[in-house]
């Protein structure tokens, strides 16, 4: 049995760890709240954008744009959105596993990867996948400019014919505890269908074609932006949950160790008493 001072030292060390995990949990919770706010405030814009695009397509369906062009897929790009750091439970592992499954559907085509986050980059590079671009510095609450940069890169890859299709693999945010890896087709853009048939006759200024050419890049940026924001919210949620359970586990461990410590201390006292009593008896006798 471990000595009393050994147990005491272990309790102290577990307590230190618990303090750290507790702090990390709270930091993640604060970031989650802010990112969630960003998800909510981005919603009116993206709903409106989708609405305008679907009206435009409904009213003049034969428009052309480089981003709508469907080609026979020879080479496919995958944007994989993971985190820069670990300590977030299964977050990175789940998204990477789901990306591999998605890529397996395209075994006959060549695949290129655009990695977002260090974890995605390192994983795929180590396994000799073709990592053709990396985006490491996405902030805790994604900025539009970061989405723009990524979207521009994807657009260039697509319009130059390097990729014939582009998918984005990210984690969909459902609740703080619940996230789902998701693969979404980014390019060619599949225009949203309007549910309530185009009842109004719109004037397009200067022309439907010009409006479409201007609208589609924004639509792409917005898709990327919402994927990045949701992925970040999920990451913070996963970190919070993982650190929360680490804190709980540390608490359980401290309880067990404290019990052990008390038992060891009691045993030592008992031993001492019996020694004293034994000694006294020997002197009397």
């Amino acid at each position: 049995m471990a000595s009393v001072s050994d147990i005491k030292r272990r309790i102290r060390s577990v307590k230190n760890t618990q303090q750290i995990t507790k702090a990390m949990e709270m930091v993640a919770a604060a970031k989650l709240r802010r990112t969630q706010g960003a998800v909510v405030s981005a919603r009116p814009y993206s709903n409106k954008l989708e609405e305008v695009l679907s009206r435009l397509v409904a009213s003049s369906p034969d428009l052309k744009d480089a981003l709508l062009e469907v080609r026979e897929p020879k080479k496919i790009g995958f944007i994989i959105v993971a985190a820069n750091k670990g300590l977030s439970g299964g977050y990175n592992a789940n998204i990477i596993r789901s990306a591999i499954v998605s890529m397996a559907h395209h075994r006959d085509q060549e695949i290129g990867i655009l990695a977002v986050g260090k974890k995605a980059r390192d994983f795929f590079r180590k396994r000799n996948y073709k990592v053709e671009a990396e985006f490491i510095g996405i902030s805790d609450i994604p900025k539009l400019s970061e989405a723009k940069e990524l979207a521009e890169a994807v657009k260039t890859f697509y319009t130059q014919g390097i990729y014939d299709e582009v998918y984005i693999v990210y984690t969909q945010f459902i609740t703080a505890m619940q996230h789902k890896p998701k693969t979404k087709k980014l390019l060619p853009i599949e225009t949203p269908q309007e549910e309530s048939g185009g009842e109004l006759d719109y004037i397009f200024d200067p022309s439907p074609q010009t409006v479409l050419n201007q609208l589609l890049p924004l639509y792409l940026i917005n898709q990327v932006f919402s994927a990045l924001t949701e992925a970040k919210a999920s990451e913070h949620g996963a970190t919070m949950t993982a650190m929360g359970s680490a804190t709980d586990n540390a608490g359980d461990m401290i309880d067990q160790l404290t019990l052990k410590y008390n038992m060891a201390r009691q045993a030592a006292i008992t031993r001492e008493i019996s020694e004293i009593v034994g000694g006294a008896n020997a002197q009397q006798g």
Binding site: L56, I203, V211
Partner: peptide
Amino acid sequence: YMGILPNHAPMISG
């Protein structure tokens, strides 16, 4: 520059 007043016809513009 373009002016919009109430009861304008439906329009989408860049």
